[in-house]
Amino acid sequence: MGGKVIAKDSLGEFVSKLSERYRIFGPRKKGTEWIFDEVRSAEEMDLRYSTTILPPRKFFIPTSERIFSFKMDGGVEEPEERDGPSLIFGIHSCDLNALLLLDMVFLEGEFPSPSYARRRERTALVALTCIDPSENCFCESMGTGPSPAGGYDVLLTDLGREYLAESGSRRGEEMLALAKGRAVTAADLEGKAKAIECAKSKFKKKVDLKGIDELFLRNLDNPVWKRLGEKDLACGICVNSCPTCFCFDVRDQLDFPMVGGVRYKEWDACVLLEFSQVALGGNFRRDRAARIRQFIGHNLGWGGASQFREFKGRAKCVGCGRCIRYCPAGIDLTEVVKELRGI
């Protein structure tokens, strides 16, 4: 696939050209943090962002979503989707890989989701090589960063005064045709390789993936879980921050005159008590220890190749570091792995 080198000064023009065809969502500063939000120009974005509060999965699986409306005397109506093409600008490598994992669940799984498929289809992705990983990142360990191997339409790498823009799809080619820039040289590719090497030297957190499925299965009764259960607040922040979590709850809500209502789904989290509750108050994971074990175990142990065969040698976790950054109790899954390994 082709590429271009775009001067930083010309990025604004590129974005404004893109905005004629797409609704653009990019990283925008919010207080001390960042969120992916609709933007109209390059100036509204902060491409040096660390991470966002909610992961980009919010665009494909909305936090809360109507499945259909119903009438009590029969009749079901599905919502119409009228949204046009959109674009996520500046998605990091971990989050991009997270979408590839969600594809396995919602596109290639036993029960594909038509709404997920539609949204994936109409959403272009402009990815960004991370040249300055933040203190909680460990995508390198997880094989998901700091620069993505594929899955993007366009990949931008900061070369200092310019961006190297590589296309990864037909759509990406068309997008790059809108950009003003010069041809790519061998020196530019070398610059990218160097930027990646430099980024790799900055990672502070690491996870050793060797035999990790077994490590977790062997340690289901490790006292570490009980200790974590005592600290854990069961607040759900970790799951709701996680780019690869895919669990949701389905509920019915009646209108007041009670002639009809809506069935909707909302993000759910296995660290919450209600998650594993069944009829008559039965609960498979009443203890917080069992629930935090599920979150960490699913992300690093049994959510990897054992659940998604295509995900050879990888885990569900893509190493974005959000669950560490935002956990009020300071629970850090990379430290838990070390403890399980007896390091």
Binding site: K30, G31, T32, E33, K58, A269, C327, P328
Partner: peptide, 22 residues
């Protein structure tokens, strides 16, 4: 359906900056 889970759930889903952590 009454929410029994913590306020943090609704807070996160609104994408607020966490006052406690941040």
């Amino acid at each position: 359906f009454l929410r029994e889970h913590p306020v943090c759930v609704e807070c996160k889903l609104k994408e607020n900056v966490c006052l406690l952590v941040c």
